[in-house]
Amino acid sequence: MSNWQQPDKRKETHIDSCSVYSLKKWQLMLMTPANSRANYPDHSSIADNAIGIGLRSTHHQQILQQLPKVGWLEVHSENFFIENSAQRQVLDQLAEHYPLSFHGIGLSLGSTDPLNQSHLQQMKALIDCYKPALISEHLSWSSNNSRYFNDLLPVPYTQESLDIFCDRLNQVQDFLGRPLLIENPTAYLSFSDSSMHEWEFLNEIQRRCQCGLLLDLNNIYVNSINLGLNAQEYLRQIDVEAVREIHLAGFTRRQLDNAEILIDTHGSKVSKPVWQLFRDFRQSCNAPALVEWDTDIPALEELLSQAEMASQHQEAVASKEQKF
């Protein structure tokens, strides 16, 4: 093995007739949530201001035993594709108690590859089975020439990217028969070829595809530090009416040479600046919010305390509004 390399330790805006049809269809569906699974309580929607947590396998049994009071659960769709699996058994039980959101990471909507039909069919089967309140994916790509990278890679904000992304998203929504929410990404670099701001790109996707938006406030903060993006301007410019879910998470600081960079690890508590963004954004948006924790996963109690903190922040915003 000595001759092997050392592993790297560090560690358009035109609306055609088809779009008009889509617009009417999705508007209707957004107003009329899908029916919940037979014999389950009605978990087909998530209440405004509801605080949820990301469901991770290490917490499955504890959540099943304790049924903590959280507004909803979000799962990574791909982890539940296999029928008759232990994962699906857990989901079957949790679906009886909580509204669900399916958060996908594998559609690679920003890629120039053809859509992976097998993946799409598995996703539809899962969605048809559980009828989650929300379905989301990312403004990113993760495949090229049928090779997948298990990561959310950045998209240049150009007209070509926009056309490709919207075309693929429309295909997915038509196939699934439901609108998706698209999440703003974290990026460690930007493309000089980009011709629009990220919020413009997202707003245009939403306008052309009649999808919803998932706003990750940690991602906005991380990008503001890494790329000099103006977070407050972002929140002012994003189409608030289209935001149907908010993500809260933590990041990790890493020193590289003389520069510090924030890594979107989802591996720590929500930071103070992100709580502040949440309070700011809560003044205009009451979409359900979720605490995500994906790496160095803590005890369930710590995750729940972060969800409780989110509730306290939004209550503080509400009480302040009442004074006026």
């Binding site: 460690y188 670099l189 930007s190 000089s192 070829d193 890494n226 790329l227 590289l256 040479d257």
Partner: peptide
């Protein structure tokens, strides 16, 4: 045509 807070190779 990448830009960012660090040299492109590091990003």
């Amino acid at each position: 045509n990448l830009t960012g807070p660090l040299p492109v190779e590091q990003l």
